[in-house]
């Protein structure tokens, strides 16, 4: 049985850190479902959000191995109930005069946005949790999806506490 976990890593923004993290996953046979990297509110510190799917391996081994990397500052697992996670998608959908209004209706229903329109296609931007994004895609599929690009999930815990507290001394 494979289970998905969403991990947030605070890392030093040093060359090679992404390779080190990715290589560790590859070497130990952990499967990365999605990955998002960016800078944070602290200079020199980046945040990696990784969704990993594990086949029976304990998550603890993953976090312990990641913690051994010198440039990794902190790791937390964000649980669904106590955190907010968002995916971001850009979707190019085939449209013509007969289908455009139906597509635009779906855009409104899912609170997505149209960011480019030409005569035979529209580009749509949608943000939401993974389930919403998948549902939206399903609605668009019959019209013909020409191109799909998505970010990995990014996530933050609910409440006022910050992950970076106590990390930087």
């Amino acid at each position: 049985m494979s289970t998905q976990h969403l991990l947030s890593l605070l890392v030093e923004n040093k060359p090679g850190i992404l390779t080190r993290v990715a290589a560790l996953f590859a070497r130990r046979g952990y499967n990365i479902e999605s990955l998002a990297v960016g800078t944070t509110e602290i200079e020199g510190v980046s945040r990696i959000t990784v969704v990993v799917s594990l086949d029976g391996q304990p998550l603890e081994q993953v976090t312990k191995q990641l913690n051994k990397l010198i440039n990794v500052l902190k790791i937390v697992e964000l649980e669904e109930e106590t955190s907010v996670a968002r995916d971001h998608m850009l979707i190019k959908v085939r449209t013509d005069s007969s289908t455009r209004s139906q597509v635009l209706e779906a855009v409104t229903l899912f609170r997505a946005r149209v960011i480019d329109v030409v005569s035979d296609a529209v580009v749509i931007e949608v943000t939401g949790n993974a389930a919403k994004c998948q549902a939206f895609l399903k609605v668009l599929e019959p019209f013909g999806i020409k191109e799909l690009v998505q970010s990995g999930a990014i996530a933050v815990s609910r409440g006022s506490k910050s992950m970076s507290e106590k990390v930087i001394r």
Binding site: P15, G16, T19, R20, A23, R27, I70
Partner: peptide
């Protein structure tokens, strides 16, 4: 060599 030895070092620097 930093890339080659990444999995077999405790850490490495360029």
């Amino acid at each position: 060599i930093v890339g080659i030895t990444m999995p077999i070092t405790k850490h490495s620097f360029l």
